[in-house]
Design a protein around this nucleic acid. Sequence first.
DNA 1: AGGAAATTTGTGTGCGCACACACACCTTGT
DNA 2: ACAAGGTGTGTGTGCGCACACAAATTTCCT
Lengths: 362, 362
Amino acid sequence: MGHKDGNQIRIKDIATKAGCSIGTVDRVIHNRGKVSEPVKKRILEIIRELDYKPNVNARVLASKRPLTLGILLPSFRKGEYWELPNLGIKEAIERYDEQGYKINAIHLTYNSPEMFYKAGMKLLANDIDGIIMNPATFKESVTLVRSFFQNNKPFILIDSDINGIPSLSFIGKDPVQSGLTVAKLSHQITKHIPGKKNIWIINLSKRKNQIYALLARESGFMKYFSDKQLQNDYSMITFDIEDHSSQKMLDEHIEKLLSQGIPNAIYVTGSRVYKIANSLKKLNLDQGPLLIGHDLIEENIAGVKDESIDFLIEEEAKRQGYLAVETMIRSIVYKEKIEKKQMMNLLIYTKENMPSYLLKQG
Amino acid sequence: MGHKDGNQIRIKDIATKAGCSIGTVDRVIHNRGKVSEPVKKRILEIIRELDYKPNVNARVLASKRPLTLGILLPSFRKGEYWELPNLGIKEAIERYDEQGYKINAIHLTYNSPEMFYKAGMKLLANDIDGIIMNPATFKESVTLVRSFFQNNKPFILIDSDINGIPSLSFIGKDPVQSGLTVAKLSHQITKHIPGKKNIWIINLSKRKNQIYALLARESGFMKYFSDKQLQNDYSMITFDIEDHSSQKMLDEHIEKLLSQGIPNAIYVTGSRVYKIANSLKKLNLDQGPLLIGHDLIEENIAGVKDESIDFLIEEEAKRQGYLAVETMIRSIVYKEKIEKKQMMNLLIYTKENMPSYLLKQG
DNA sequence: AGGAAATTTGTGTGCGCACACACACCTTGT
DNA sequence: ACAAGGTGTGTGTGCGCACACAAATTTCCT
């Protein structure tokens, strides 16, 4: 009769079995105060043996300690990609707040590697339980993470990974797979067009070469066609358009490119397909190219709605943020073991399967 | 100073404000025991005014009452569609179990309208807090639901809805939208084929006309082509194959059909595309038709993996079950207000975006 | 040996709630 | 008038845990 029925193991049951008081067990569980080695060992053994799982409700109810999270993500304007993970983070915090958790978040943003590093160090100065961040560049990330590690602050990487970094977890996507998926769609849809097909890959980014995801998507896309030995049927051209700040200039740019001939498909690797869609709309082509891009930001959704964008791929950007907060809580509060990588699903959206709640807000 | 900080309203705060004891407030909240009208009214007013939200953790911790759910779904064998919602239900129960909830589930299955009705009535005989079910046929559902209603048992419909039935919530899909999505893919992929395109719609079901979802998918599919005025470019043929129990017979059937000419695309409206895929594989066509179907059951996943199936659409079957349990708990335990309809997303799967954990198990 | 200090262990309180119980106050009927 | 039965209300206990505090035990030093 170790414990009461319902095979719910309690601290009290452990204490009884170990022949000590619940206070001692408590100390072992929380690693606070001093417990003699033999007793500690014995208790840990019993905990494992009985597969003790703390009662979450009781724990949250009794604990007054708030959880403080540092959030370190790229800065963004309304309607831009990074709004989505942030939204997920916000929703998660709200939800856990309702559940009785006290969660403080310190949000810092960056728009350069230096700011990234500085902000990260600033987070360390605060009394923080864990960090959710998107790594800017390899060099800065590594040095920053070293400090996190020395100060024993767990951190989660979201959206893009840096290999070999000892994060609590990586939550994000596989950009190569993204590229492959876009390639599959492009291939299927264009394969019956007679003759050699032309596909453009457009990057709208000031620093494409620093953004791994963009490069990886592009190479995934290429990989598909080379794996299938389609080089003779398809010709690819990549355009890096660094300055897309003015839609008018972009329009002209695109028009000039198109004057050489209209491609069969265009793949925009970043999140700004809608800009290309807008440019194309103005040209009033009777048979426009297949247009595929990424991410469920508002203007892209509108583009899918009016069919100026054919397909949108997304990697559950919002859910990444949500999961990051949830994972932190699972690790810190519940002390659960966390999977090293949590890969998001790759969702294909087109007008017909766009959730109605998304279509309406546009 | 109504209550303590952290603006967490407690029963005690309500009691203080109402000038009574927590016992009385408790009685009002749970509608048990007798409370004089004026006091009751006053307390309810204060509850609304303060926007009191019970502390879930404390509630679960203190409550010993188990939650008993009746589950009434079609019977199934391993690898069939209904395994997925059931899996979701199981996962949800396990998860809430871990969280300290005590949940009993009474599972009953049916494979005929009569069994459906009988099983439903049997559930009523047990002491059940709520019911999760998939309605078999209109007539039986209506009479059954009447009994549920009279006995004040809340019920959730999953997968398919019956209009005008006062369910707590409907959790499922929009089959017309499914059909539209498949049509979009089919159209996009075949549109560049010269001449008139042939598409087959295949139903593998013994009682297609009784299953609304199948009919609705088919009509959604048709609707797309008629909305876009594509009647001249496309010809559709529907094949209802009632007996598909033997793969060999099916193979012969398909071979015979194909001897008249190979279609450009085949859409299988049920969950058994893999059977068609298997038949096609044996024929070794050098240019097989585009093959699209539904649902992430094991054999379909394998088909996508070896590219004998091109696309799979799914409506988050597993999540439907999960959400049903969660919704029941939210309603009964938390007394939250529930959305009348919870529509699932429509996911498009192909080899390239199939989650790796699904590919591996095949 | 005899304390003081350090180490180890035990006890008590409260988190917010559900629920059983006790209590007070009214009706009735005899 | 007194018991018996409502009707309305207040109090106490415990759920499993965290955490502050008290107590017991050992170690060390003169």
